[in-house]
């Protein structure tokens, strides 16, 4: 991507122009060329939103809850971005993304931007897409970014974990709720919400949550709070928002927020490196005519030496032109630079 194109995209994002903004997110989600550079360029404008993770099992009413939360936040004058993540089919790679149906009347609210996302399922790809999209939405100066995920897979839980405030939604009657509680999903939540509180069994879940928390080993962060809502009837949602806001305020004073943001940044750097190393390794080892395996067999090289060679190529080719923190005046280029693929068999 040329610098001019990128600057235009940054401008579109900063002005929150829906089409440009949406295309930028696609670029990041597809990990297309130029995505890295765009994120680098956006970086100075990020960090301003309160990122709230909402996770829970299918059927727990997360989307309805999100819809209500957004409406109340809008009534308070805040702007909101929503990232709604649903699982990708492992068989076809396609996905059915239906969370918007619950938020249909938010579609035309200019202070709200909703984006659906499939988990797609490449190594850490979801995390990268979500971190990137959070950044894009932050760059539009949204006050809140809500990341809604299905609390079933590890990667979804990981994503929720890096939000500033994590809301875990429980619901009576799904049968698997007690298992989820036992499996430690309570550990990631700052706020544990029993939704559909009007259904029978709600108080049982509430008491199970309480006893689980009482038995849990002490943690550095403040103990999670439990509350009940009925999103459908719009009951308890205002209290939930107050607690979300309160959680951030407290997190700021106690250093918890810094800790969370540090975790998010660390996860983001790890995700970039993991992808780039995996990609470079794949390219290097599957180049046509590569004889590294023969040389390994002959004892002419070792796995460690091969890894070191790949690493050097990564640094030279992948990060060429990317400013590291020591360089001060190099021009801001695409983080991954122009790929100069060597056809020569270096290994």
């Amino acid at each position: 991507m040329r610098t001019a194109e990128r600057d235009k995209m940054v401008e579109d994002i900063r002005a929150a122009r829906p089409a440009g903004l949406a295309r930028a997110i696609s670029l990041i989600e597809d990990e297309a060329e130029g995505a890295g550079g765009l994120l680098e360029a956006l970086h100075p404008h990020t960090g301003g939103a309160h990122v709230v993770g909402i996770t829970g099992p299918p059927g727990s009413g997360k989307s309805t809850l999100t819809d209500r939360i957004v409406k109340h936040l809008r009534a308070r004058g805040s702007t909101v971005g929503v990232i709604a993540v649903d699982p990708t089919s492992p068989f076809s790679g396609g996905a059915l993304l239906g969370d918007r149906t619950r938020m249909a009347d938010l579609a035309t609210d200019k202070g709200v931007f909703i984006r659906s996302m499939g988990t797609r399922g490449s190594l850490g790809g979801l995390s990268r897409a979500v971190y990137g999209t959070i950044k894009v939405l932050e760059a539009t100066e949204k006050d809140y970014v809500i990341v809604e995920t299905v609390g079933v897979g590890q990667s979804e839980v990981d994503i929720a974990r890096v939000a500033d405030t994590v809301v875990v939604v429980f619901v009576p009657g799904l049968g698997d709720d007690v298992q989820a509680i036992k499996a430690g999903i309570t550990e990631i939540g700052d706020l544990l919400v029993v939704n559909k509180a009007d259904l029978p069994g709600a108080s049982r879940i509430e008491s199970t949550l309480e006893s689980t928390l009482n038995l849990a080993p002490p943690r550095v962060e403040p103990a999670p709070k439990i509350l009940t809502t009925s999103a459908e009837r719009d009951e308890g949602v205002v209290d939930l928002i107050d607690m979300i806001v309160e959680h951030l305020a407290l997190a700021k004073t106690t250093g918890l927020l810094a800790c969370r943001r540090r975790m998010r940044a660390k996860a983001e750097i790890t995700a970039i490196l993991t992808r780039d190393i995996a990609k470079r390794t794949e390219i290097s080892l599957s180049e046509p005519g590569a004889d590294w395996y023969e040389r390994l067999q002959d004892g002419r090289t070792t796995p460690g030496a091969l890894a070191a060679t790949i690493w050097r190529k990564l640094v030279i080719e992948e990060y060429e032109g990317v400013e590291d923190e020591n360089s001060r005046e190099a021009s801001p280029g695409d983080r991954r630079g122009e790929h100069r693929r060597s056809h020569e068999d270096l290994l």
Partner: peptide, 13 residues
């Protein structure tokens, strides 16, 4: 409507 509210359908795909 003003008393009863409106129904939103669950997402079933």
């Amino acid at each position: 409507r003003s008393v009863f509210g409106e129904y939103t359908a669950p997402i079933v795909l």
